[in-house]
Nucleic acid binder design. Structure first.
Lengths: 234, 234
DNA sequence: CGAAAAATTTAAGGTTAAATTAAGGGCTGA
DNA sequence: TCAGCCCTTAATTTAACCTTAAATTTTTCG
């Protein structure tokens, strides 16, 4: 639930007042990462520069329409879309959405209603992500339920700390995770003095996950920044 | 939320009482980095010497007007502006703002109202700034979450210092960033002696971002001033 | 045009963050 | 109580990154 609030939402509408209203409502609901754009061009710019989790698109836009924008967005993003449409405007393209991963809402709508739809759609789209128990990393598989690693010569067990760290890395796979964030995950707020310990655990993880622990291909260090988990699936 | 309070705000007005009042209110709201100036000249001085996050400009000023000042500020800052305007004074230039990134408020106004506008504008402007992950520069793309540059023959990694610098340049893209500002970003207040080092890092960035590092098309030097990042998007 | 200033460029050296290894202490379960 | 495992600590080594410096080129300005 909490996770959902941190998702990035992009709202595209040509009416500034509506835009601001939606933004304020979402903010008051706890969505702090809301971006807005008044037209297709700026929407695409924003969406390309940061990964959005959900789009809210007005069907009518000054430099095109919601469907054109939708098609452009789909070229690089799978995030679900909620269309804002005027009454009577609902054509087949819109009705077709009911079956898919997207949704629509007819203007004028109650603020509460939009929030509900957004929450529902986010949950539907991202709920299953949290419950993943098998982490595939290269040719190894980590089972988070019983803390085992298979795929190597022998199946090995992960310790408690190692499990926490690999989970944290997995949540942010293909992104650099700062040492601070890793320490925080393992020891809580007050982790001063455990930085060295972290390195040892990383070493152990490498011994259990990598072919060559000293020339890692999956747990990559970014000196001065942190570590990055590269999963290798394409 | 908290970070917004630490942003630097510059308030420009020729009435000392109003200036004091605004400063007090903002202080009591938790904005501890508020600067004030009574005229355009001093406003420009202040704004040039430290990076402001938001400007509050009276339309009427002794040595010019808010719009002239606005145009001058825009030469080196992309921070949003709130204009203070007298009733009936609201002309088209002001109304045009409703669509853009800026805002205005009609005098006399309630203190609470100004604070709300400031908070909303800061949120709108910086909520998305911090979360930008992909910087598109020419045909290369910098992913700030993994410190990588794609688009060249091979994907290359950026180092910690290089990442800080390219981010700082990006924040001020298409504007000159002074050497001082870049040094400040990379080494903090006390950067004396690192100017040469800065140049070497710039060189490395050029090697990673430019087709021809010795004839740069994106990281342009402004001799005697600093560097400018030209992004090439139209 | 010529000198001075500023910026570029290269490579080597130093510094510091991370890797590595091993040992000790504490908790847990038999 | 004791054995075994896990976590931490610490000392040493390694290597990536940052800085420095010196030579060279470019720009500015008298």
């Amino acid at each position: 639930m909490d996770e959902l609030l941190n998702k990035k939402i992009l709202v595209v509408d040509d009416e500034p007042e509506l835009l601001r209203m939606i933004e304020d409502i979402l903010f008051s609901e706890g969505f702090y990462n809301v971006c807005t754009a008044p037209d297709c061009a700026r929407a695409l710019d924003l969406a390309r520069s940061q990964t959005m989790a959900l789009f809210v698109l007005d069907v009518n836009l000054p430099d095109g329409n919601g469907f054109m924008l939708y098609n452009e967005l789909r070229k690089f993003s799978r995030a679900p879309v909620i269309f804002l449409t005027a009454r009577g405007e609902a054509d087949d393209r819109i009705r077709g959405l009911a079956l898919g991963a997207d949704d629509y809402i007819v203007k004028p709508f109650l603020a509460k209603e939009l929030v509900l739809r957004i929450k529902a759609l986010l949950r539907r789209t991202y709920a299953s992500e949290d419950t993943v128990t098998e982490l595939h990393i290269g040719n190894r598989t980590v089972d988070t339920e019983n803390a085992s690693v298979t795929g190597g010569a022998k199946t090995v067990q992960l310790t408690a700390k190692e499990l926490i760290l690999i989970k944290k890395l997995w949540e942010n796979r293909n992104r650099i995770v700062t040492n601070d964030a890793l320490c925080m995950a393992a020891w809580g707020e007050d982790y001063y003095g455990h930085e060295n310990s972290l390195m040892v655990h990383i070493r152990h993880l490498r011994e259990k996950l990598e072919e060559g622990p000293s020339s890692p291909r999956h747990i990559i260090t970014a000196k001065g920044l942190g570590y990055k988990l590269v999963t290798d699936d394409e």
